[in-house]
Protein backbone atom coordinates (compact mmCIF):
# COMPACT_ATOMS: atom_id res chain seq x y z
CA UNK A 1 0.00 0.00 0.00
CA UNK A 2 1.09 3.58 -0.66
CA UNK A 3 -0.33 6.51 1.30
CA UNK A 4 0.68 9.99 0.15
CA UNK A 5 -0.31 12.87 2.43
CA UNK A 6 0.10 16.57 1.62
CA UNK A 7 3.12 15.81 -0.53
CA UNK A 8 4.98 18.98 -1.44
CA UNK A 9 8.18 19.50 -3.39
CA UNK A 10 9.92 22.79 -3.96
CA UNK A 11 13.17 23.54 -5.80
CA UNK A 12 15.21 26.69 -5.39
CA UNK A 13 16.23 28.21 -8.69
CA UNK A 14 19.61 29.83 -9.13
CA UNK A 15 20.11 32.64 -11.62
CA UNK A 16 21.26 30.29 -14.34
CA UNK A 17 18.15 28.14 -13.89
CA UNK A 18 15.90 31.23 -13.85
CA UNK A 19 17.36 32.17 -17.21
CA UNK A 20 17.02 28.60 -18.49
CA UNK A 21 13.32 28.42 -17.47
CA UNK A 22 12.71 32.05 -18.50
CA UNK A 23 11.29 33.04 -15.10
CA UNK A 24 11.99 35.54 -12.33
CA UNK A 25 10.62 33.19 -9.65
CA UNK A 26 13.19 31.98 -7.15
CA UNK A 27 11.38 28.70 -6.49
CA UNK A 28 9.51 26.15 -8.55
CA UNK A 29 6.86 23.82 -7.10
CA UNK A 30 6.48 20.68 -9.20
CA UNK A 31 4.25 18.98 -6.59
CA UNK A 32 1.87 21.01 -4.41
CA UNK A 33 0.37 19.27 -1.36
CA UNK A 34 -1.19 16.26 -3.04
CA UNK A 35 -2.72 13.28 -1.21
CA UNK A 36 -3.84 9.88 -2.46
CA UNK A 37 -3.76 6.18 -1.60
CA UNK A 38 -2.88 3.13 -3.69
CA UNK A 39 -4.27 -0.18 -2.46
CA UNK A 40 -2.71 -3.65 -2.84
CA UNK A 41 -4.21 -5.70 -5.70
CA UNK A 42 -5.33 -2.52 -7.48
CA UNK A 43 -3.76 -0.49 -10.21
CA UNK A 44 -3.48 3.23 -9.55
CA UNK A 45 -2.83 5.58 -12.42
CA UNK A 46 -1.30 9.01 -12.02
CA UNK A 47 -2.35 11.10 -14.97
CA UNK A 48 -1.32 14.51 -16.14
CA UNK A 49 0.09 16.43 -19.07
CA UNK A 50 3.84 16.81 -19.57
CA UNK A 51 5.44 18.74 -16.69
CA UNK A 52 2.44 18.13 -14.39
CA UNK A 53 4.64 16.63 -11.64
CA UNK A 54 4.03 12.91 -12.24
CA UNK A 55 7.68 11.91 -12.42
CA UNK A 56 8.61 14.03 -9.39
CA UNK A 57 5.82 12.35 -7.39
CA UNK A 58 6.92 8.87 -8.43
CA UNK A 59 10.55 9.69 -7.69
CA UNK A 60 9.59 10.77 -4.20
CA UNK A 61 7.59 7.56 -3.68
CA UNK A 62 10.61 5.57 -4.90
CA UNK A 63 12.88 7.49 -2.45
CA UNK A 64 15.00 8.83 -5.28
CA UNK A 65 14.32 12.36 -4.08
CA UNK A 66 13.04 13.69 -0.76
CA UNK A 67 9.83 15.67 -0.35
CA UNK A 68 10.06 19.23 0.97
CA UNK A 69 7.10 18.47 3.22
CA UNK A 70 4.27 15.98 3.60
CA UNK A 71 4.62 12.25 4.02
CA UNK A 72 4.79 9.07 1.99
CA UNK A 73 4.04 5.75 3.60
CA UNK A 74 4.94 2.60 1.69
CA UNK A 75 3.82 -0.73 3.19
CA UNK A 76 3.75 0.86 6.64
CA UNK A 77 7.21 2.42 6.25
CA UNK A 78 8.07 6.09 6.09
CA UNK A 79 9.74 6.81 2.75
CA UNK A 80 12.00 9.51 4.23
CA UNK A 81 12.96 7.99 7.57
CA UNK A 82 13.17 4.37 6.37
CA UNK A 83 14.23 4.86 2.76
CA UNK A 84 16.49 1.78 2.72
CA UNK A 85 13.64 -0.47 3.88
CA UNK A 86 11.22 1.16 1.46
CA UNK A 87 13.55 0.50 -1.47
CA UNK A 88 13.49 -3.22 -0.69
CA UNK A 89 9.71 -3.13 -1.15
CA UNK A 90 9.77 -1.20 -4.42
CA UNK A 91 10.36 -2.06 -8.05
CA UNK A 92 10.83 0.91 -10.38
CA UNK A 93 10.46 0.83 -14.15
CA UNK A 94 10.55 3.60 -16.72
CA UNK A 95 10.05 3.69 -20.47
CA UNK A 96 13.77 4.08 -20.94
CA UNK A 97 15.10 0.59 -20.34
CA UNK A 98 18.10 1.77 -18.32
CA UNK A 99 20.37 -1.20 -18.93
CA UNK A 100 24.14 -1.61 -18.73
CA UNK A 101 24.94 -2.41 -22.33
CA UNK A 102 28.16 -4.28 -21.67
CA UNK A 103 26.55 -6.71 -19.23
CA UNK A 104 24.72 -9.82 -20.37
CA UNK A 105 21.08 -10.38 -19.49
CA UNK A 106 22.09 -12.84 -16.75
CA UNK A 107 24.71 -10.48 -15.30
CA UNK A 108 22.29 -7.58 -15.31
CA UNK A 109 19.62 -9.54 -13.45
CA UNK A 110 22.15 -10.98 -10.98
CA UNK A 111 23.54 -7.50 -10.24
CA UNK A 112 20.16 -6.15 -9.21
CA UNK A 113 19.33 -9.36 -7.33
CA UNK A 114 22.55 -8.92 -5.33
CA UNK A 115 21.80 -5.26 -4.64
CA UNK A 116 18.41 -6.35 -3.35
CA UNK A 117 19.87 -9.18 -1.21
CA UNK A 118 17.91 -11.88 -3.04
CA UNK A 119 19.00 -15.30 -1.70
CA UNK A 120 20.60 -17.60 -4.31
CA UNK A 121 17.79 -20.19 -4.37
CA UNK A 122 15.07 -17.53 -4.66
CA UNK A 123 17.10 -15.81 -7.40
CA UNK A 124 17.20 -18.93 -9.58
CA UNK A 125 13.51 -19.61 -8.99
CA UNK A 126 12.40 -16.07 -9.87
CA UNK A 127 14.77 -15.73 -12.75
CA UNK A 128 13.51 -18.95 -14.32
CA UNK A 129 9.89 -17.92 -13.71
CA UNK A 130 10.34 -14.65 -15.61
CA UNK A 131 12.60 -16.15 -18.29
CA UNK A 132 9.86 -18.71 -18.99
CA UNK A 133 7.08 -16.14 -18.81
CA UNK A 134 8.80 -13.67 -21.14
CA UNK A 135 10.61 -16.23 -23.31
CA UNK A 136 14.07 -14.90 -22.46
CA UNK A 137 16.28 -18.01 -22.35
CA UNK A 138 17.66 -17.42 -25.86
CA UNK A 139 19.30 -14.14 -24.98
CA UNK A 140 20.31 -14.87 -21.39
CA UNK A 141 24.02 -14.85 -22.30
CA UNK A 142 23.86 -11.96 -24.75
CA UNK A 143 25.00 -8.48 -23.85
CA UNK A 144 22.04 -6.16 -23.42
CA UNK A 145 23.56 -3.69 -25.89
CA UNK A 146 23.07 -6.29 -28.63
CA UNK A 147 19.38 -6.83 -27.88
CA UNK A 148 16.31 -5.43 -29.65
CA UNK A 149 14.14 -2.85 -27.88
CA UNK A 150 11.58 -5.54 -27.00
CA UNK A 151 14.22 -7.84 -25.55
CA UNK A 152 15.73 -4.95 -23.60
CA UNK A 153 12.34 -4.11 -22.15
CA UNK A 154 11.98 -7.72 -21.00
CA UNK A 155 15.35 -7.55 -19.24
CA UNK A 156 14.27 -4.32 -17.64
CA UNK A 157 11.07 -5.97 -16.38
CA UNK A 158 12.96 -8.86 -14.78
CA UNK A 159 15.46 -6.43 -13.27
CA UNK A 160 12.49 -4.59 -11.67
CA UNK A 161 10.77 -7.73 -10.42
CA UNK A 162 13.66 -9.99 -9.39
CA UNK A 163 13.34 -9.10 -5.68
CA UNK A 164 9.56 -9.68 -5.76
CA UNK A 165 8.63 -6.12 -4.71
CA UNK A 166 5.34 -5.47 -2.94
CA UNK A 167 4.98 -2.13 -4.69
CA UNK A 168 5.73 -1.54 -8.36
CA UNK A 169 6.20 1.98 -9.70
CA UNK A 170 5.96 2.51 -13.45
CA UNK A 171 6.95 5.94 -14.78
CA UNK A 172 5.46 6.27 -18.26
CA UNK A 173 6.47 2.66 -18.88
CA UNK A 174 5.28 2.38 -22.48
CA UNK A 175 6.57 5.74 -23.71
CA UNK A 176 8.71 5.28 -26.80
CA UNK A 177 8.02 1.56 -27.06
CA UNK A 178 6.56 -0.30 -30.03
CA UNK A 179 3.22 -2.12 -29.71
CA UNK A 180 4.76 -5.52 -28.87
CA UNK A 181 7.07 -4.12 -26.20
CA UNK A 182 4.24 -2.06 -24.73
CA UNK A 183 2.12 -5.22 -24.60
CA UNK A 184 4.79 -6.89 -22.43
CA UNK A 185 4.51 -4.03 -19.95
CA UNK A 186 0.75 -4.21 -19.90
CA UNK A 187 0.95 -7.98 -19.24
CA UNK A 188 3.39 -7.30 -16.40
CA UNK A 189 1.12 -4.69 -14.82
CA UNK A 190 -1.79 -7.15 -14.92
CA UNK A 191 0.43 -9.91 -13.56
CA UNK A 192 1.38 -7.64 -10.63
CA UNK A 193 -2.29 -6.98 -9.88
CA UNK A 194 -3.07 -10.70 -9.93
CA UNK A 195 -0.25 -11.27 -7.43
CA UNK A 196 -1.80 -8.71 -5.07
CA UNK A 197 0.93 -6.11 -5.51
CA UNK A 198 0.36 -2.37 -5.23
CA UNK A 199 0.82 -0.84 -8.66
CA UNK A 200 1.17 2.83 -9.49
CA UNK A 201 1.88 4.04 -12.95
CA UNK A 202 2.04 7.42 -14.62
CA UNK A 203 0.76 8.00 -18.09
CA UNK A 204 -0.97 10.46 -20.35
CA UNK A 205 -2.35 7.78 -22.66
CA UNK A 206 -6.02 7.36 -21.74
CA UNK A 207 -6.52 4.11 -23.68
CA UNK A 208 -3.83 2.49 -21.55
CA UNK A 209 -5.43 3.84 -18.40
CA UNK A 210 -8.86 2.61 -19.50
CA UNK A 211 -7.44 -0.83 -20.15
CA UNK A 212 -5.64 -1.24 -16.85
CA UNK A 213 -6.42 1.00 -13.97
CA UNK A 214 -8.78 0.67 -11.02
CA UNK A 215 -8.12 4.05 -9.44
CA UNK A 216 -6.75 7.29 -10.82
CA UNK A 217 -5.57 10.73 -9.90
CA UNK A 218 -5.06 13.61 -12.31
CA UNK A 219 -2.48 16.25 -11.53
CA UNK A 220 -1.80 19.46 -13.37
CA UNK A 221 0.95 21.98 -12.60
CA UNK A 222 1.66 20.10 -9.37
CA UNK A 223 -1.92 20.25 -8.09
CA UNK A 224 -4.30 17.32 -7.68
CA UNK A 225 -7.33 18.05 -9.86
CA UNK A 226 -9.14 14.72 -9.75
CA UNK A 227 -9.06 11.62 -7.56
CA UNK A 228 -11.37 8.59 -7.61
CA UNK A 229 -11.97 5.12 -8.98
CA UNK A 230 -12.06 4.44 -12.70
CA UNK A 231 -15.72 3.46 -12.41
CA UNK A 232 -16.55 6.82 -10.81
CA UNK A 233 -14.56 8.61 -13.51
CA UNK A 234 -16.50 6.87 -16.25
CA UNK A 235 -19.87 7.51 -14.59
CA UNK A 236 -19.17 11.23 -14.03
CA UNK A 237 -17.81 11.85 -17.53
CA UNK A 238 -19.08 15.06 -19.19
CA UNK A 239 -17.13 14.67 -22.43
CA UNK A 240 -17.67 11.95 -25.02
CA UNK A 241 -14.36 10.13 -24.72
CA UNK A 242 -11.96 9.45 -21.88
CA UNK A 243 -9.27 11.54 -23.55
CA UNK A 244 -11.68 14.45 -24.02
CA UNK A 245 -12.74 14.17 -20.38
CA UNK A 246 -9.11 14.15 -19.26
CA UNK A 247 -8.42 17.29 -21.32
CA UNK A 248 -11.57 18.93 -19.96
CA UNK A 249 -10.55 18.33 -16.35
CA UNK A 250 -7.01 19.56 -16.93
CA UNK A 251 -8.22 22.71 -18.71
CA UNK A 252 -10.87 23.37 -16.04
CA UNK A 253 -8.22 23.33 -13.37
Amino acid sequence: MIKVTDLYKEYQLNKKQQKEFNTTETTVVPVNKISFECQPGRIFSLLGPNGAGKTTTLRMISTMIKPSSGSINVCGLDAVEQEGEVRKKIGFLTGSTGLYERLTTDEMIKYFADLNDVPAEKFEERKNYYYDLLDMHDFAKKRTGQLSTGMRQKVSIVRTMIHDPEVVVFDEPTSGLDVISAENIIKLIRNCKEQGKTVIFSSHIMTEVDLLCDDLAIINKGNLVYKGSMDEFRSQMQAETLTAEFIRIVNQA
Partner: peptide, 14 residues
Amino acid sequence: ERGTIETLLTSPVN
Protein backbone atom coordinates in the same frame (compact mmCIF):
# COMPACT_ATOMS: atom_id res chain seq x y z
CA GLU B 1 22.97 9.67 -19.87
CA ARG B 2 21.99 6.00 -20.23
CA GLY B 3 19.22 6.41 -17.65
CA THR B 4 20.60 3.63 -15.43
CA ILE B 5 21.22 5.94 -12.47
CA GLU B 6 17.51 6.02 -11.63
CA THR B 7 17.23 2.26 -11.30
CA LEU B 8 20.37 2.22 -9.19
CA LEU B 9 19.04 4.96 -6.91
CA THR B 10 15.84 2.99 -6.26
CA SER B 11 17.81 -0.10 -5.21
CA PRO B 12 18.33 -0.68 -1.49
CA VAL B 13 21.83 0.79 -1.58
CA ASN B 14 22.63 4.16 -0.07
